[in-house]
Write a protein that binds this DNA or RNA. Structure first.
Lengths: 270, 270
DNA sequence: AAGTGGTCTAGACCACAAT
DNA sequence: TTGTGGTCTAGACCACTTA
C-alpha cells in the first residue's frame, strides 16, 4: 500500500501534463484558481501551492489581477538526476559508461580535511573516473568521500553500481549540494583521457554534497568536454536567484570560492 | 506613503537577520512555528511562507516532526544583481568599468531573428563591450537587443548609464532569464581585449532575457576570465533543481541548447 | 506519549487587471 | 465595475520525531 500523494502534488502533475501535452499552449491563460478549485474539488490552498511550484519552475508566469499564462517549458531536473552521471545519462536516453582510473584510501591533509569537515589524517576515499556517453569520453571526475561514506565504496564494485546508488543502499542520502562552475585548461591527465590537446578549455564543476543530516559527504571536481555537456539555469525576479556570480581573486575563499582541495596529482599515477 | 510589506516578508527579513547576525548559529534549531506565531502575533500561514523561502534558499533545513535547523549561509543574489554587471560589481564592493567596443544597428538574419523572436530583417541593436573590475579586464559581452529595447540604447550614453538601467527608465523590466554555461577557447577578439593567449579557456554564459510580458528582450554571450569570476548554484532534493545538465551534440538544439546566434565577427571590426 | 511540521479546509479583505 | 490573484486568519487532522 502506497499512500496517495498530496493533493497539491497531484494537481501539479495534472497541470504539467496539460502544458507538456499541448492542451494549454504557450502564452495561453490558465483557468482561474477558482475554476481549478471547482474542477478538482479541493480548496484554494493546494491549488495555490501547485501554481507556486509551476511559477518557480518558469512553466507559468503572470501578475496580480489576471490568471497566469503558460510559458516556454523549461524542463527541470531532479536533484538525483543532476548529481548522478548515470541517472542523467539514462534520462536523456544515452548509454552511460565509465572507466575507474583510481580508487584509493588516503589520509586527508589539512586542506582537504577542512573542506570535508573531518579530522586531519582521517582516512578519506578518493575516486578518479572517466565518464562516457555512448562510449565517448565526456568528463573526468575526481571525488573525495568522508570515511563514513567512503568505506562502502572500497568494498563496492564501482564498475557495476553507481556511487550514490551504493551509498543510498547504506542509508546515506545526498540531499543538498553546492556547485561552483568555472573553466580550466586541460592538463596532461585530462588531455590523455578526454582525448584533447593539453590546454583545451574544459568546463569544471566543483561540488560539495551534503547528506540528509546536513553533513558533508563528499567533494568532487568534474571536468567536462564543453562540446559534450553544458549547464542551464532559469532565473527570475520573483525569487532570489539560485545562481550566484562570484568574484574570484579578491576576497578570501571563505565561501568555498573557486577550486577544490583535491590535489592535482590524484589520478596521474595511473 | 509606501505601504507596509507583507507579514511573511517582514518575518523573513527578521529571520534572515537573526541568522546572519549569529543570534542563531549553524546547526541550531529554530523556534517552532507555533513559537513564531506567538512571538510575531501572526497566524501560521505567513510563518510557513517565510520558512519556505528560507528553505528554498538553503538557509534552513530539516524534516517533518522537528523544528528546522540553521544551515551554512549561502548568500543568494537578486535577479537584478545577477544580470547586471554594474550592480554586481557594486554589491561586491568593486569598481565596475567598461569599454564600449561597438554599438551598431543591424538587420537580423534568419538565425538571429529566430532567437530574438522578431521578424527577419528587423533592426536589432548589437552591443559589444569589455567589462572591468577595478580597472582590470574581466569579461567580454556581446549582446543583441530587440528593436523595442534597442532603440533606447542608440540614444543613451552607455559609458554612463547601464543598459538595464536605461531600459527600466523606459518601462522595460527584465523579469526572467535563461542561462547556458559552457567553456570556450579565446579567439583573437577575446585574446586582445582580455589580454590572454589565443586558445585560453574562457567561461561562457549565453543568456536570453525576457521582459515583464514574457517577451524576449535580448540575447547575450558573455565570456569571462575564469580566474576572475565563477558561478555558484545551491541545489537540493526538496525542489526540482534550477540547474540542468544538458547534453550538447546529440539532439537538435530546439531547447536553445548551446551557443547563441550572435555572429562571431561582431566586434572584430573595431 | 507529546509535540512538531505537513497538509487541508473555509472564509475573508485588499490591490490590481480586465472590461 | 467586476473578477482575479495576493495575503491573512482560524481551526483541523495526520505522519513523523523526540524524549
Amino acid at each position: 500500500m502506497t499512500s496517495t500523494p498530496p493533493l497539491y502534488s497531484q494537481l501539479y502533475d495534472a497541470l504539467v501534463d496539460r502544458i507538456r501535452s499541448g492542451v494549454w499552449k504557450e502564452g495561453e491563460r490558465l483557468p482561474t484558481e477558482q475554476a481549478l478549485v471547482a474542477e478538482f474539488g479541493i480548496s484554494r490552498g493546494p491549488v495555490r501551492q501547485a501554481l507556486a511550484q509551476l511559477r518557480s519552475e518558469g512553466l507559468v508566469f503572470g501578475t496580480r489581477g489576471a490568471p497566469p499564462r503558460v510559458q516556454r517549458a523549461a524542463r527541470s531536473q531532479s536533484f538525483e538526476t543532476f548529481i548522478s552521471f548515470t541517472e542523467w545519462a539514462e534520462e536523456i536516453g544515452r548509454v552511460p559508461g565509465q572507466k575507474v582510473i583510481e580508487v584509493t584510501r588516503r589520509l586527508a591533509d589539512g586542506d582537504l580535511a577542512r573542506q570535508l569537515h573531518v579530522e586531519e589524517d582521517s582516512p578519506v576515499v578518493a575516486v578518479v573516473r572517466l565518464r562516457l556517453l555512448d562510449g565517448e569520453p565526456v568528463m573526468i571526475e575526481r571525488g573525495a568521500y568522508v570515511p563514513a561514506a567512503g568505506r562502502y565504496l572500497l568494498a563496492a564494485d564501482l564498475e557495476v553500481d553507481g556511487v550514490y546508488q551504493t551509498l543510498r543502499g547504506h542509508g546515506i542520502h545526498p540531499t543538498r549540494a553546492r556547485n561552483v562552475i568555472d573553466a580550466v585548461a586541460a592538463g596532461p591527465l585530462e588531455a590523455r583521457w578526454l582525448e584533447v590537446e593539453v590546454g583545451s578549455p574544459l568546463l569544471r564543476v566543483c561540488r560539495t554534497t551534503f547528506d540528509q543530516n546536513g553533513e558533508i559527504m563528499d567533494i568532487a571536481e568534474n571536468k567536462y568536454l564543453p562540446n559534450k555537456a553544458t549547464f542551464a539555469v532559469e532565473n527570475s525576479v520573483r525569487s532570489p536567484t539560485p545562481l550566484t556570480r562570484m568574484s574570484v581573486d579578491g576576497g578570501a575563499t571563505t565561501e568555498g570560492g573557486g577550486g577544490t582541495a583535491i590535489p592535482a596529482e590524484w589520478g596521474s599515477g595511473s
